[in-house]
């Protein structure tokens, strides 16, 4: 066998190996989705979205409170995590070329690696213990700690992609650094930042551990942010470990809804990028 033939065979083998590995990464997602769809879709109906859970044994009921609770938690989290995340990302990209910036960057990466259960306990000690109540607020605090590093680092990376020539053009027009950053650089980077935010939301939407010690969960409709609040991941957790078939079905349905929400988030974020690119080309 000559050397060329051998190389060809090795080449073919290695190429197939990469393809097979790529397929392996695809399989879990597809199988999860199909499985959850087949188990959960059948239990979906209008009352699932609008009704409260029923006691054990009574058929019907829904997860309206958990769906609303998850949306509330996401909203509350975004309220503080997006400004903090985006602005700290701006700091890192525009002024963070120093020791402090390096420290912040490193801490953000570490925070990103802190197990979410630990973040939950931290929020419990900081909020729940002194306030003497589980609350939506403490849940939003815990989720924010998970969201901020992601938003911050994507914002920084996207801002650094804006070419220096664009910044210099703005400065050369006598535009202040603040206006340049807000009106030119952030605007240029906006689709990327929005994508980062949507992906971060998709991530926190499914978080369970940080909510166990903070939002706690709630069988009823929420009554303000200083009270315990229901959330889909919590409800799934509670129902899945219960011994009742009816609750299992509900848990599957909730999993399906949650996954769909996360898929939609991802899809929208990609759509945002696509539309932005298209509108720039078409003009």
């Amino acid at each position: 066998m000559n050397i060329y033939k051998r190389r060809k065979i090795i080449n073919a083998f290695m190429c197939s190996a990469t393809f097979i590995c790529a397929t392996i990464t695809l399989l879990p997602l597809i199988s999860i989705f199909i499985y959850v769809l087949s188990k959960g879709a059948s239990s979906l109906n209008i009352s699932f979205f609008t009704h409260l859970p029923r006691p054990v044994g009574e058929p019907g009921g829904g997860m309206g409170n958990a769906i609303l609770g998850t949306l509330t938690l996401i909203g509350l989290t975004c309220l503080w995590a997006i400004p903090v995340g985006v602005l700290s990302g701006v700091y890192l990209a525009e002024f963070g070329n120093n020791k402090f910036g390096a420290v912040v960057r490193f801490s953000a990466d570490l925070l990103n690696g802190v197990p979410s259960i630990v973040i939950g306990i931290f929020a419990y000690i900081l909020f729940v213990v002194p306030m003497k109540t589980f609350s939506a607020l403490s849940g939003a605090f815990a989720l924010g700690l998970i969201m901020i590093p992601t938003v911050m680092r994507t914002t920084e990376e996207i801002l650094l992609l804006v070419p220096r020539t664009i910044r210099e053009a703005a400065l050369a027009l006598g535009i202040s650094q603040f206006r340049m950053t807000i009106s030119i650089v952030l605007k240029t980077a906006l689709p990327g930042i929005v994508t980062g935010i949507l992906l971060a939301i998709a991530r926190i939407a499914g978080e369970t551990a940080p909510l166990l010690f903070t939002a706690l969960g709630n069988e009823f409709w929420q009554r303000g942010i200083m009270q315990p609040i229901a959330a889909m991941p919590l409800q799934i957790f509670a129902y899945a470990i219960s011994p009742f078939d009816d609750w299992h079905r509900q848990a599957w349905a909730a999993s399906f809804v949650l996954i769909t929400i996360i898929f939609l988030m991802n899809f929208i974020s990609r759509l945002v990028i696509y539309l932005q690119r298209k509108s720039l080309k078409a003009k």
């Binding site: 070419p163 020539t165 664009i166 210099e168 053009a169 703005a170 400065l171 050369a172 027009l173 006598g174 535009i175 206006r179 340049m180 009106s183 030119i184 605007k187 240029t188 906006l190 720039l280 003009k283």
Partner: peptide, 30 residues
Amino acid sequence: RRRIGMVFQRPNPFPVLSIYDNVAAGLKLN
């Protein structure tokens, strides 16, 4: 920089701004 303007080597209009806003940028943002 407002009194001493500059034109760069490579054309560098602001990509997310319209033609109108590119010209008006220096004024609007001030």
